[in-house]
Design a protein around this nucleic acid. Structure first.
Lengths: 197, 197
DNA sequence: ACCTGGTTTGACCATTTGGTCAAACCGATC
DNA sequence: GATCGGTTTGACCAAATGGTCAAACCAGGT
């Protein structure tokens, strides 16, 4: 079934409101207002707040999951892969804060389990990839789990906690925003340097 | 004025509930239940939810702010400072997730501004410290803002988004928890390596 | 025993919020 | 223009929630 114009307006509004206020803080009335329809209409299209939220949540996961497959194929060398991963992931986090996901995960930890059950059975792709590089003596000999944590942290946190870091670095929000582009490149450099022999 | 036994029981309960559910999700009734008193009594001691929350929020800030002064004195060499900062900061985040702070900051951005207004006027201590080291040619020649972001990210994020990273690394929560000790040490190593010439 | 001050609480209130429903609306088909 | 399916909405509801208050409680002092 296709998405009607009304539906897509609702989804756009829901995206905005849920991202801003989180699941608990979001109000159905405000979503309706932003979408320019009545609350009753909102419920006509999406039966409940939970259902509507799940739709947005899934959309978001669908943007992130493919990025985790960066480490599957054998195109490009590992340095290029790392740099692309960092830039792409930060691109997603830039217009859709991961805070949204962290919050929801705390509210209902099962949500992720269900959605990634299949994925969870296989080993972590990055770790597997790094182990292979390590066996071929192409990278530094160290625990890839640490690197994975460092990589994800450096991508997510500066955007997740932008208000605080922005203040800590004594920058104006706009300035911080443009600085993030430089940061993405430099962070990728640092990560590559961590892995290089 | 001293803190009565009832008051400290309330504060303990509030700490727990606010940390678990955030400001919006927390319920006064539940705080009362956890503290083992009636909701009316709760309001007798702390007039409003906001007031009670502010008390907890301030407590938390008071634990973090001193750590930011690590870079002030000239005791110890910079490597030791970095290692201590990482371990200490992660220690705080371990029993008191910073998610709490990030959420609140989004709800009311002014809260931090007021509280750190004095601090914000001076330059960032770490950046200042690194510039000095750089001038003395003791460390690598690079933008300290990038390093500051990397350092904070690597400390905060693995604990902030523990459920997800725990799953990503295919670890059980308990296992992840003990792994954090190793991580803290290794993360500090990586950061030192980033700064070393 | 009686008072007095702080403490505790059940009952209650106003407001907010997710959700429902019957009635109105509207374009297309006959 | 009557009918019909899908759409839209104002009015309404039940539950939850932060907060209030008068009455009860309970030590310590007289």
């Amino acid at each position: 079934m296709t998405i009607t114009e009304a539906e897509s307006r609702i989804l756009e509004a829901a995206r905005k409101v849920f991202m801003e206020d989180g699941y608990v803080g979001a109000r159905m009335q405000r979503i309706a207002d932003v979408a320019g329809i009545s609350k009753a209409s909102l419920h006509y299209y999406f039966r409940s707040k939970e259902k509507l939220f799940d739709r947005i949540f899934d959309e978001y996961m669908d943007r992130i999951v493919p990025l985790l497959n960066t480490w599957e194929d054998d195109s490009d060398d590992w340095e290029t892969k790392v740099r692309r991963f960092v830039v792409d992931l930060m691109e997603v986090f830039k217009d859709t804060s991961i805070l949204f996901l962290v919050q929801e995960l705390r509210r209902d930890p099962k949500k992720l389990d269900e959605r990634l059950a299949a994925k969870r059975k296989k080993p972590n792709r990055f770790i597997h990839y790094y182990e292979r590089l390590r066996a071929s003596k192409l990278v530094r000999d160290q625990d890839p789990r640490i690197l994975a944590l460092a990589m994800h942290s450096m991508c997510a946190y500066p955007l997740l906690n932008a208000p605080m870091m922005c203040g800590a670095l004594r920058m104006a929000p706009a300035e911080y925003d443009t600085f993030m582009t430089t940061y993405a490149r430099e962070a990728a450099d640092l990560l590559v340097r961590m892995m290089k022999k």
